[in-house]
Write a protein that binds this DNA or RNA. Structure first.
Length: 499
RNA sequence: GUGGCUAUAGCACAACGGUUAGUGCAUCGGUUUGUGGAACCGAUGAUGAGGGUUCGAUUCCCUCUAGCCACCCCA
């Protein structure tokens, strides 16, 4: 990163041409469009999500599966659907060295289903419950909450079509967001099995054809290409038409209808709140019957906590008050990308991909979007804990010895920070302070000779000489005390704030 | 893929058609060769790339690239 080319050089054109051989470019390499680095300081969000996914999956008895990022192109064409935008224009597709077409996965279900078939999972107790998280790729134009490499997690239940499984999947999804503390709404619909859907499509197209003139340009296209999408157009004229448009649920066959009713009954029994959304359709071809999405509740930062203690302000609470008001005023843009995730049944996909028929249901959620929401709403995900202690040294001899101490303490399970390459004590203390460690151990000439160490309590600034050999016990004792003190302190503090 | 806005140091911002492109934070060093959360002093570091107009462009124009926003689509 520190490297910077002074030379100004021509940008290599995007399309590699023959007359542009592998001339060395002096241009500093750059992130590919739509890609994003996840830096150390953001890592705790990602850790948090993966912990939550793991925990939720575990309590529902799901096993993790990791499938490759690269698959045969045909896997996605056959599952996601030839006609979809994802396949038509958004896949990263390339020829491997033998000329077969391979693609970066644009979504997760296809790979899981492929694995289900390939490993004969139909011989396991059914249904098989699996979850995943990882990177996915779509060559779309980047935008808020939309990247070309993005991350999703997902849950899949393959091998049974009982409506209780739909309900379980919905509950699991709901619970996942609930336990994070994110207010969401669960939007539910049924699109029926393929025949119902075809019937419905016909009726829908008929309906719109008669009113074609008042449709927007996009919708005229959709009428041809993807009629179900007519239902979520944002144009006001189209929205008016939508009001009276036929609804999927009215065109379900008896079986699909029963299934859907049963799912909803189970949901009611579970007391999982949901919103029946007859206009909800999903973009991928393989969905059938139950379809659902997770929408974040509209975020309204202004409403948060408006205290009316204007008068107090002048007197005592200079800093605290400022901090708080700052937080509330901080401008937060609501995300325009509405869905945090979505899912549904895919009863015909396993068969479509050449396996024995096996009905299934799944969900996939976007991690970047979820993290956005978490940040926007200041949801508590726990703070990354600083290291316990810092070891500081003065002089070359001390440096040698401190390295050994570091290694011993590390083995004993302490979390230690250091800054071995620094010389003065001051920069080391600064570092210790910035990191927020509780204690700093100092080893200089004097201590080297005496066989002692200095322990400095970073909060109080008090320091004490201790015998080198007793350091581990000393630290253990002090860290234990510190924990207790800190806890009692922090409860005091919070009550102070409340009053 | 379509449209709109934008591009100055690691970050946040400033400036001007004209000498050396400023400030804050951060980083590094010093005031103190053994002490952090304070102060002071100093240093490193930038006009996204290419072309054009001009005596002179970071500023004006074009192209490219990237970012943001909306559409499309979706997570």
């Amino acid at each position: 990163m520190p490297y910077k080319s002074r030379e100004k050089s021509k940008i290599i054109p995007n399309k590699p041409t023959e007359d542009q051989p592998q001339e060395k470019s002096k241009k500093t390499p750059q992130l590919l469009r739509g890609m994003k680095d996840i830096l150390p300081e953001d890592q705790h969000y990602w850790d948090f999500i993966s912990r939550r996914v793991d925990a939720t999956a575990k309590t529902f008895g799901f096993g993790r599966i990791v499938t490759p990022v690269l698959e045969e192109t045909s896997l996605f064409v056959r599952s996601v659907g030839k006609e979809t935008d994802i396949i038509e224009k958004e896949m990263y597709t390339l020829d491997d060295k033998h000329g077969s077409s391979i693609s970066l996965r644009p979504e997760g279900t296809a790979g899981v289903v492929r694995a289900y078939i390939e490993h004969g999972m139909l011989n396991r107790p059914q249904p098989v419950k699996m979850f995943y998280y990882g990177p996915f790729f779509r060559h779309d134009r980047p935008q808020a909450g939309r990247y070309r490499q993005f991350h999703q997690f997902g849950f899949e239940i393959i091998g049974d079509k009982h409506p209780v499984l739909d309900a379980q999947m919905l509950m699991m999804t709901y619970v996942f967001y609930q336990e994070i503390g994110l207010p969401i709404s669960l939007q539910v619909n049924s699109v029926g099995h393929p025949e119902c859907r075809e019937d419905y499509k016909k009726v829908l197209v008929d309906y719109y054809k008669k009113r074609k003139n008042s449709l927007c340009e996009d919708c005229k296209n959709r009428l041809q290409k993807n009629p179900l999408r007519l239902l979520d157009c944002k144009e006001s004229d189209c929205q008016v038409l939508m009001q009276d448009a036929p609804q999927t649920v009215d065109y379900l066959c008896e079986e699909c209808n029963e299934h859907f009713v049963s799912v909803l009954e189970h949901l009611d029994g579970l007391e999982v709140p949901y919103v029946l959304n007859p206009r909800l359709v999903r973009g991928l071809d393989y969905y059938s019957n139950t379809a659902f999405e997770i929408w974040p509740e509209v975020y309204n930062p202004v409403e948060e906590d408006k205290d009316e203690d204007e008068e107090n302000k002048e007197d005592k609470d200079g800093e605290n008050a400022n901090e708080e008001t700052e937080k509330n005023i901080e401008p937060v843009k609501p995300s325009s990308q509405s869905a945090l995730g979505g899912g549904g049944r895919y009863d015909y996909l396993v068969e479509e991909l050449g396996g024995q028929p096996a009905p299934a249901i799944g969900f996939a959620g976007g991690i970047e979007r979820l993290i956005n929401e978490i940040k926007m709403r200041h949801i508590d995900i726990g703070q990354p804990t600083p290291p316990d202690i810092f070891v500081a040294q003065l002089g070359d001899e001390a440096r040698k010895k401190i390295l050994k101490l570091f290694s011993e303490l590390r083995k004993s399970g302490f979390q230690i920070a250091e800054s071995f390459s620094k010389n003065g004590l001051k920069p080391q203390m600064e570092m210790a302070n910035k990191l927020g460690v509780k204690f700093t151990i100092i080893l200089g000439q004097k201590e080297l000779i005496d066989g002692t160490l200095l322990i400095r309590d970073m909060e109080s600034g008090l320091q004490e000489t201790v015998d080198y050999d007793t350091i581990k016990d000393e630290l253990k004792k002090r860290l234990a005390n510190h924990g207790v003190r800190k806890n009692s302190r922090s409860t005091n503090r919070s009550s102070d704030n409340l009053s």
